[in-house]
Nucleic acid binder design. Structure first.
Lengths: 99, 99
DNA sequence: CCTTTGTTTCGTAATTTTACGAAATACGAA
DNA sequence: TTCGTATTTCGTAAAATTACGAAACAAAGG
């Protein structure tokens, strides 16, 4: 019921959130793969990327939390894909921002 | 003399660095102002933004470190402006990334 | 049921980020 | 030189991020 004055706009907060998701090279790398080709599995990434699987899992979780990426369960694997809708939103926000 | 294998590309690291600079709403807000109109002073920002001046100064320092913003000394004030060259680079990197 | 496979969660530690107020700095004006 | 203005740096604290290995989990196959 508390009416709190928000200083930052919704767009500013969304942009910051997407930017935060992309603020680590491994997350940029993962999104780059997912946007260029198709979806992929955590294990596929783990073989390429020079970090522990548990750490990779944390980064994937962050990308999921940001909304840029989603995971589809495909037992016993989990297939990670871009969330097209949010990806398009981020694209638009950055485009507007730099315009 | 050490030849270290770098896993992430220069572009991935640069993008992550710019994204990090934009990963806080106040920094998005500041860049938004600087890109829309002209330069401005720390004090002008301090009057608008709901954070302490010292905290604002830290955010400005981070924006300077990222290369997106530069400060011109204009005693007794310091005028902050976008670094046009780096701004254009960031714009291009994000454009390519989302393409 | 037990094992294997793929992946995540837990526990932990080091580092970084975010934030504040107080003190320091720089410089022009009185 | 002393004062006032504009801003940053320092000291500090709380919270978040990044990273790892060990343990847990879920599902399919034997």
């Amino acid at each position: 019921m508390e009416e709190v004055k928000q200083f930052y706009s919704v767009e500013e907060k969304k942009l910051a959130r997407y930017a935060k998701a992309l603020s680590h090279p491994v997350r940029v790398y993962i999104c780059g793969i997912l946007s260029k080709q198709a979806c992929c599995y955590s294990g596929d990434l783990a073989e390429e990327v020079p970090i522990a699987r548990s750490t990779l899992s944390q980064h994937l979780k962050e990308l999921k939390n940001s909304g840029l990426v989603q995971g589809e369960i495909n037992p016993p694997k989990i297939k990670y894909c871009l969330n097209k809708e949010n990806w398009a939103e981020a694209q638009q926000l950055f485009k507007e921002f730099f315009k």
